[in-house]
């Protein structure tokens, strides 16, 4: 149990780092956008709609990045831990309890 939960943690941390890297890239995108906007718009006034829409697209990029990670994890969870998956033939270690949901990780784990 100890090793699996460590692995789980490692996976989670790896996923999180990917998210952070993706977000760092997003802000680079912002920089590129801003430069483009400056080249294009030599007028004296701020291009209000461009600013707002650029913000929108940056935010949706962030949202979809995080969304892809979360829903990807979820789809994988649903596929991997469904009871019909051949890997899940063996009952979990809580199933011998009177109520599996009333078990705990500490007492049963080791």
């Amino acid at each position: 149990m100890k090793s699996t939960s460590k692995q789980q943690m490692k996976t989670l941390i790896a996923v999180s780092i990917i998210a952070l890297v993706a977000l760092a890239l997003v802000s680079q995108l912002h920089f590129a956008y801003a430069q483009l906007a400056q080249q294009e718009n030599t007028k004296q006034y701020l291009n209000l709609r461009a600013e707002v829409w650029n913000l929108f697209f940056r935010m949706t990029t962030a949202a979809f990045t995080v969304g892809a990670i979360v829903s990807g994890t979820m789809i994988w969870l649903v596929w991997r831990f469904r009871e019909s998956n051949p890997k899940n033939k063996a009952p979990t270690k809580w199933e011998h309890l009177e109520d599996p949901t009333a078990g705990s990780y500490e007492e049963e784990g080791h």
């Binding site: 699996t4 789980q8 994890t73 649903v78 831990f81 469904r82 009871e83 199933e95």
Partner: peptide
């Protein structure tokens, strides 16, 4: 999600 991790889920 963490509850479903390592489970044997009946859908």
């Amino acid at each position: 999600l963490a509850t479903m991790w390592g489970a044997r889920i009946r859908f």
